[in-house]
Write a protein that binds this DNA or RNA. Sequence first.
DNA 1: CTTGCAGCCTGAATGC
DNA 2: TGCATTCAGGCTGCAA
Length: 288
Amino acid sequence: MPELPEVEVVKRSLEKNIINLIIKKVIINTNKLRYKIEKKKIKKIITKKILSIKRRSKYLIINLENKKSILVHLGMTGKFFIMNNDNKTKKTSFYYELNQGDEKHNHIIFHLSKNTKLIYNDVRKFGFIKIILTKDLLENSHLKLLGPEPFSKKFNLIYFKKYIIRKKRKIKDILMDQNFVSGLGNIYVNEILFFSKINPKKSVEKLKSGEILRIIKFTKKILLNSIRKGGSSIKDFNDGLGKKGVFQQEFKVYSREGKKCHRKNCSELIKKFNISNRSTFYCQRCQK
DNA sequence: CTTGCAGCCTGAATGC
DNA sequence: TGCATTCAGGCTGCAA
């Protein structure tokens, strides 16, 4: 599932592969992702050059020369493939593999110059692609209310304390809230709380400064580490039908229900329960 | 204002 | 074996 690190690696892959290329043609195989594709707007980006790629939270922004931008969210299963003139499908990130039969879910295909194709594939169609004016990005409803990026200086102790004041929500809930801090999803939040030794159920009003500082520190550390590993695993843009470029992510708690806690000298089994209808994994001995 | 939750979608895993 | 059900997940928009 693409969270901030996965999306960041897509961004870097796209930067390497499609900058300065021109959009020649766009094939729409599936008209409706999360939102209906506006064909009129798609028409207007034909012949335009791709100037830059940005990321905000889990969103990708592809800036074009005609003052328009393509705003992309990958949802749960969205992924971009690149195809060059060798006709081999290549991955743009580390969170998925290439499989036979993927083409079935190739919903949108951008034909670019230099015989390059950018393919949007999405099994569950939770993602979306919208064309908007670049100048309207900041006011866009998807982006407007997003909290600070986890790496930014704004995500600090003072901000944290101010946000949670008089709130009684669980810490896991707050970390999942994109308006508090943007880019985290269920997997990384589980991991962050394990490393921070905080019980996901803990009410934010009970958090001590030291605990908050741990959360902030590990958030940055865990995300950075994933970007680094994931980025290096696909740096050669291998087609995943071989085994190269596959980075098996290792999680400490996520999806490890009933397995032994990885912390030294702890033999507790990882427990699973729901918070806000999301799977939550933790070690009840290590996380208080 | 804040918080909670249904619904969008498909395929894999599980249940009977 | 095969059919039916459940689960996974981010985000929006509405209800309480």
